[in-house]
Amino acid sequence: MEAGFPNVCLIISFLFLLGALIISLFRLITGPTIYDRIVSLDLIASIVMGFILLYSIVVNKAIYFDVVIVISLIAFIGTVSISTYLKTKK
């Protein structure tokens, strides 16, 4: 990727997303309670959506947008199902 203002912006946003991913992974691994882990899993899904959108800009293909639509529709069913499980366990 050659230098230039749009590419520098892309690289900076990739770095920020990577930082967010590392921080939420840290919370996923060393979460004090299970609720922290659930929220961090939801957050990781959102960050992955951001990664896919940026990658679709890099490779210049719109077909990746559908992946993002599906992830955004599916993402919170995991959260809801774990919450239901925790609620019925008590």
Partner: peptide
């Protein structure tokens, strides 16, 4: 995807 739409309803 079609099955998940019903599972949403179930939850």
């Amino acid at each position: 995807l079609a099955a998940l739409s019903v599972i949403y309803y179930g939850f």
